[in-house]
Design a protein around this nucleic acid. Sequence first.
DNA 1: GTCTATAAGAAGATAGAC
DNA 2: GTCTATCTTCTTATAGAC
Lengths: 192, 192
Amino acid sequence: MSAALSKGERTRADIVECARRLFYEHGYDGTSFSAIVEASGLVRGNIYHYFKSKDDILKAVVAQHLDEFSALLARWERESTDPKQRLLAFIDMVTGRRNDLVKYGCPIGTLNSELAKDRRDLQQGARALFDLFRTWLAARFTEMGQPPAAADALALHLLGRAQGIALIAHVYRDAKLLQQETAVLQDWVKQL
Amino acid sequence: MSAALSKGERTRADIVECARRLFYEHGYDGTSFSAIVEASGLVRGNIYHYFKSKDDILKAVVAQHLDEFSALLARWERESTDPKQRLLAFIDMVTGRRNDLVKYGCPIGTLNSELAKDRRDLQQGARALFDLFRTWLAARFTEMGQPPAAADALALHLLGRAQGIALIAHVYRDAKLLQQETAVLQDWVKQL
DNA sequence: GTCTATAAGAAGATAGAC
DNA sequence: GTCTATCTTCTTATAGAC
């Protein structure tokens, strides 16, 4: 439950939301500052009033992602107490977002992949999004009786499988491939 | 066995090799034309004598990749007639290249991932690199008695697993994670 | 908090001399 | 085939009026 936003806070949130969508659809480097200007309906100077640089906007976008995914993970924990069901909720997210995944790839994976090559400073922040899922998934495997090291390995395994599926589906722009592979991943979870 | 190259052909090949390395290490968009100029030791105008645009250089880089990977696949076919051993050769490539994979990601995966967002024209050419492996891997599953549709699905599954491993290892810059996950993938192949 | 104007540099690409 | 010089456009960022 968040408090009502002041005008300034609303403007700031609007900028972050526009940037989040543009960064996802076109990549960080592929999104010019002017594109954010146009999408937000504001003017250049105004945006610089809220953020001192484009890098700064990305940091806010990553923070927003962290908030939203944290809320999602909390919801999955509320919706079921069975660790397997919780893991399946993770896979359901992948199938549920298949249209965007096919068009733009995984928002976390493509962002980290882009930043990892030449913007390691920014990637370090974006990697927190991986850590969020990695930790949460590992906790589910711990619930299933796995010791810590094995739980972390299984979490990374699942995360990697999901990333591979998203990448292949993105490269081939094919939702059927995504469905086909998530089914295999579901079977893997069920037989654990 | 290739014929000796003329001076012009050598210069052209040098440009492609410099660009290939830069595109891999810094991404396509992250590599400026000036960077290719400096790395090749030539001057701007000279490079434009061989390629009419930066996009054109990328197409030549993709073509070179296709040549090299085709040669690699042919070698794996010579080195063993057992389909499982051939699949394991594919995984051995991943572990063998772990240092570069950790630092720069998969040359095929990161290139396609970058281009798929906003340069679909170029990505279409780069996707041929995925098709090369997809077709070759599917042929191995066919050798193992799988019908065509299943062989293709298994090929994409293996390709996706390898991509996921490369991405995770790249994001965390961790060769141990790569080793850990390739071991799991080897086990999967062996139990087929 | 909003806006205009502009700085300062880097990008890809071209023309034309040698 | 090699080179210098330049064009145009786009980039992020800033200064300062209102």
